[in-house]
């Protein structure tokens, strides 16, 4: 594994993996982060995995830039990149109607029926390359090109939390009410970010997401279950 390092000021370091972005690289970065967690190095405070790099935050009082770089070089030698598990999280989504105001436009622009769009969107499994932009916002790859579409020309002032959208060849979910320029095709009742919970997030970088079409009634049912705390997230851990 060919790593290069760049200082990000005195308290962070960017570790670059000299490879093109791919699902295999995301696996590698996941393995790298798991290793980092298991090593519990004094002075490393946290890290942010991205498409082809990891930013590592550390305390220069305890660790110098050079010490950290040397440690990382040694660490990757023993890195086990064989992925032993992959996590798949199901996102129940109500497509169209008020929850997906752009579904019909997106279908028409791609010469498809709305049903085709839903079928194509729910048949994919999407890899989380990175989480950023907003708390819990997943950057997903794996969208079928037949339902890709450029961003909205006029971004909306406010997109409700849970909205599922498409922009270019990416799909994503808005964790919070936020302005946004994506085509909104549906909405999930899941809360991608809940600060009150002990585990405020549903997934992390390297996990896969799958969308499942649900009716408006099912949406309301799940919403009630989430409020009561009885909803059980569909989550598969697969061993390879």
């Amino acid at each position: 594994m060919n790593l290069t390092f760049h200082p990000l000021g005195e308290a962070a370091l960017k570790c670059c993996f000299q490879e093109d972005v791919s699902p295999a690289l995301t696996d590698k970065i996941q393995a790298f982060c798991r290793k980092l967690r298991s090593k519990e190095i004094i002075g490393i405070t946290e890290w942010v995995p991205a498409y082809d790099s990891v930013a590592i935050y550390y305390d220069p009082w305890k660790l110098s830039y050079q010490q950290l770089a040397d440690f990382l070089l040694n660490m990757v030698v023993e890195l086990d990149v064989n992925r032993d598990e992959s996590k798949m999280v199901t996102i129940p989504t109500h497509y169209g109607g008020d929850d997906g105001p752009d579904l019909e436009n997106l279908a028409a622009a791609n010469n498809l029926s709305t049903k085709d769009v839903i079928n194509l969107h729910t048949s994919g499994s999407y890899l989380i390359n990175m989480i950023g932009f907003l708390p819990g916002f997943p950057y997903l790859s794996g969208l079928d090109e037949r339902i890709a579409m450029p961003r909205l020309e006029n971004p909306r002032q406010s997109v409700p939390a849970g909205s599922v959208g498409i922009a270019e060849s990416q799909t994503g979910i808005y964790p919070l009410d936020s302005p946004g320029g994506w085509h909104i095709i549906g909405r999930t009742p899941l809360k991608l970010f809940d600060a009150e919970k002990e585990e405020p997030f549903l997934f992390e970088q390297g996990d896969y997401l799958q969308f499942k079409a649900i009716s408006e009634d099912e949406y309301k049912q799940i919403q009630r279950e989430i409020e009561n705390g009885t909803y059980k997230l569909e989550r598969k851990e697969e061993s390879e």
Binding site: K14, V48, A50, G132
Partner: peptide, 10 residues
């Protein structure tokens, strides 16, 4: 650029 982690003071 390919998105990456942004440090304090970047």
């Amino acid at each position: 650029v390919i998105s990456d982690g942004v440090p304090l003071g970047g």
